[in-house]
Design a binder for these strands. Structure first.
Lengths: 363, 363
DNA sequence: TGTCTGCCTGAGATCGTTTCCATCGCCCGT
DNA sequence: ACGGGCGATGGAAACGATCTCAGGCAGACA
């Protein structure tokens, strides 16, 4: 056997055998009261060093571990947070969940995860279930934030909640973390104009989607500041089909009306765009500069790597957890908006025949 | 006399206001015993229709909801399963988690999620934490399944466990769900040979990885059955760098030694391969057929869509949950191996100068 | 020396259920 | 008519912790 202090095989009680040791058993074995064991284990001040030592020894001997369930029942808090998520297989949401879980764990909370599979009824059901499990707080990435039943469930739950990547306008007193989709588009647009582009296009998602709306207005805002440039927005679904048909129709226009730079509103749209470009033998970035709003870090998969307007889902998750923790610690429901950023790559270059040169050296 | 429960003032208290209604209050209001309410709520048989009706009415009136915490404490089961996952941001694992959570929820279980961030110490820590929360079972996608401390933690937990996409050889009595990585590679190889390829290459992951080992031996096994074809395996990291340098070196060989078909061992490797091909102006599939072992469904992003050897992570998750449920219901620890499949696309075509034609018309 | 103060400790109530056990009618068979 | 069996109900003991409250004991001060 290994010599030295760590060896405690002698006691005879096979730790791995004992199914579960209760506080009462520790108390009996140590010859002290149950309440004293509780004080030692939960780290209260009012215990003498002798008592502490004595109890801790028995705790180690028996391999006692506190039962968080019983503790929760008595204390009225479970140190558990419920995360209702549309679909964890969505890479953006997975990264958010990772960030949130990490932060919550640091603070001693565990995270329950439930997928709604894009079914608003499941959203409500999960909130109800989480409530019955007495979670201390909720992180919600809801399917449909206009569901009235949901607001009721949420109110009944009566615990702090943070809407993750969703607007909280309909839920007074509930915090939210949102992306500022405009900032990334603004920066991308500025950069493209700076490169000399005067014909821009945004192949966008549906106007019903907040991100799509924000992106469209951001583009228009920048164009208003730059009379030398023009741009158009084509709304549709977040789908490859929309991307492909729209791109094809743009390419079919009169030569000088064809945009020299395109922003795709999602990776799905991008896929369609690339397909259309391939078919028309359009080369990136020689014939066309392309930027995409990525929902997963795929830029590197393309050649050239694609310039992206990107979010930081991990940070979003961390901030969501942080806001929830603030409320759990008694603070107010605070909301936060996170910026989106533009990461330029070689998929953006000056246009082939710049309508108007802004600088001498084009590179 | 603290917390005088029965003395709640206000008969018709707004439901959304009352923080929480206990079974005792329901009993008082209905004028029956606490235990009778319990029987009605938990659906026992021995209750008269009158009693049931009477209790259920009050339950509805007060908006009573059972406290799962207290129930768990008493019943000794929490209807909760812990999922320890390396990193939920890994798309494969996210999909697995989705499948597992869905199945578990159907069976009435909730899922706690913890990320280990590829840190074996965290694996153990999470298992310990889950044990203290008295989870009924564990799903484990471990970082390092050779960690001895982990085996000890697992034994102490003393609950059913299923290793997800990990080998259970070291943990007697623990179930496992694994991919059969060989079958997909075998099918892909057969298909390529069928197309007329005689020079194959597998740009593989590290031999320390079980998937990589299985793939290599599968390739060799098929080649042994087909003397007319030859192939080579290049082991290395699951990285773009390995893919790029290996592909470049393969292309630099004598013309007739250059493979006409390549299998990339992961998407990361694929990225490197594609980069090398681009640089050498090699066209898919005209000059080279390419297959990849995808860990996320990216095939569609490429043009042409890439042929893939694919797994079904969602199914893996479901099966994992199913095996765990079997154990939770008293069944034995059963293990399962899931096949991988080959999905051919236009990225595979007959070689340019087939060393030997197998059929007349090659499209 | 007596009393007061203050620190520790132990006993017991409590959190909200489930479940065992005893009781109480009631129906039925003989 | 009476005892046995049975179904429905109420009471109370768990489950495993936390926390309040009261009491014991020691040191200090008058």
């Amino acid at each position: 056997m290994r010599g030295g202090g760590a060896a405690r095989s002698g006691e005879g009680l096979a730790v791995s055998q004992a199914s579960r040791v209760s506080m009462q058993e520790v108390a009996d074995r140590a010859g002290v009261a149950l309440s004293s064991v509780s004080r030692v284990v939960s780290g209260h001040r009012d215990v003498s060093p002798v008592m502490r030592e004595r109890v801790l020894r028995v705790v180690a001997d028996l391999g006692y571990e506190p039962d968080i369930l019983a503790r929760s029942l008595r204390r009225g808090q479970t140190m558990t947070v419920g995360f209702v998520v549309g679909n964890i297989a969505n890479p953006l949401l997975a990264e958010i969940a990772l960030g949130a879980e990490t932060r919550l764990r640091e603070a001693g909370y565990a995270m329950l995860l439930a997928n709604s599979m894009d079914d608003p009824a499941l959203d409500s059901a999960h909130i109800r279930l989480f409530r019955q499990r007495r979670v201390d707080g909720l992180l919600l990435s809801l399917t449909d934030d206009r569901d009235p039943e949901l607001a009721a469930e949420l109110a009944r739950a009566n615990v702090p909640a943070v809407l993750v990547d969703r607007d909280a306008a309909r839920y007074p007193g509930v915090a939210a973390v949102l992306y500022d989709h405009a900032s990334g588009v603004e920066r991308a647009t500025e950069a493209l104009i700076e490169l000399g582009h005067t014909h821009l296009a945004l192949i966008n998602g549906p106007p019903a989607s907040r991100p799509a709306r924000e992106r469209a207005s951001a583009l228009r805002r920048v164009l208003r500041r730059h009379p030398e440039a023009a741009g158009l927005v084509r709304s549709g679904a977040f789908s490859a089909q929309h991307g492909e048909s729209t791109m094809a129709s743009l390419l079919a226009q009169d030569n000088e009306a064809v945009p020299t730079a395109v922003i795709a509103g999602s990776n799905q749209i991008l896929v369609g765009v690339l397909r259309a470009l391939r078919r028309a033998n359009v080369i990136i970035p020689k014939d066309l500069s392309v930027v995409t709003c990525d929902d997963q870090p795929l830029s590197e998969l393309f050649d050239p790597p694609l310039a992206t307007i990107s979010r930081q889902p991990h940070e979003l998750g961390e901030v969501s957890a942080e806001l929830l923790l603030e409320q759990l610690n008694g603070g107010p429901a605070r909301s936060v908006v996170l910026p989106t950023s533009f990461r330029p790559t070689e998929s953006c270059a000056p246009p082939r025949q710049p309508a108007r040169r802004r600088r001498g050296g084009g590179g």
